[in-house]
């Protein structure tokens, strides 16, 4: 009997310790389990506030973050249920791209290739609010699109098969090591569809073709990507 009591008391203590630990952690995060979403939103807001010149709102009311050299844009629907990547098609066409061979999700809009994901909301022109608010909504409507890239200390928004837009958690330093952050924003393009449509990666100008660590179904993989990093701060 005494032994059983001892076991029950031990179990209760264990449960209490576990609960206390979890509660303490949760208090630290303000009750948020999805800390990546919270921090992604915060850092996104910090970024657009730090370099407001990057942020524009297009005719559809979407928020646009444009590369300093104007060669690429990340588009965020004001209602947080639409994202797109748009980039200058010329270097890719020069490298062999046959646009008609791209999947339907890719469109050539003037001199830009555009890839969209999600549905742009009706009347988005009238949508009030900020880019940060749109990002916050996006983390809820498309939680799977948000990610964190440990080696770069970047958050990112996945834009379907096309690639992603990444931004640094801190524009100044890497959170973990304190080293200077030199890649504040990065436009990332997945090369598969482009290569299939005739692009010779080595001939693409203005983009870095390099391996990147990604998570895929739980596995950490290194895959080749087209990268366009910018130090904006």
């Amino acid at each position: 009997m005494l032994k059983n009591q001892k076991v029950i008391v031990s179990m209760l203590i264990g449960v209490l310790v576990a609960t206390a630990l979890i509660v303490t952690v949760m208090i630290n995060t303000g009750g948020q389990l999805d800390t990546v979403a919270v921090n992604a939103t915060e850092s996104f807001a910090q970024m657009v506030n730090t370099v407001p010149s990057l942020l524009t709102r297009d005719g559809n009311g979407h928020w646009n973050i444009t590369a300093p050299d104007g060669s690429a844009r990340f588009i965020l629907g004001a209602e947080g249920n639409y994202v797109a990547l748009a980039w200058d098609a010329k270097p890719f066409i020069a490298a062999g791209l046959a646009v008609e061979k791209l999947p339907d999700a890719y469109t050539l809009n003037g001199e830009e290739l555009v890839y969209t994901m999600g549905v742009a909301g009706d009347g988005s022109k009238e949508q009030a609010g900020t880019a940060a608010l749109a990002m916050q909504t996006l983390t809820k409507t498309m939680p799977g699109a948000i990610g964190y890239h440990i080696p770069m200390d970047h958050f990112g928004v996945m834009v379907g098969e096309a690639g992603m837009f990444e931004w640094a958690q801190s524009l100044e330093t890497l959170t973990d090591t304190g080293e200077p952050q030199e890649k504040d924003i990065v436009f990332v393009l997945s090369p598969d569809a482009l290569i299939e449509a005739g692009v010779e990666p080595a001939l693409v100008e203005g983009w870095v073709y390099a391996p990147v660590e990604v998570m895929d179904g739980g596995a950490t993989l290194f895959v080749e990507k087209f990268l366009k990093p910018f130090n904006i701060a």
């Binding site: 800390t35 998570m215 895929d216 179904g217 739980g218 596995a219």
Partner: peptide
């Protein structure tokens, strides 16, 4: 998540780069 040479089934809601807190908790 650390095994690179094989894709093991893994819940998306626990992906360490997406949900690190949940992953650790």
């Amino acid at each position: 998540p650390m095994i690179g040479f094989v894709r093991l089934p893994f819940p998306a809601s626990l992906e360490p780069m997406r949900y690190p807190l949940l992953f650790s908790l």
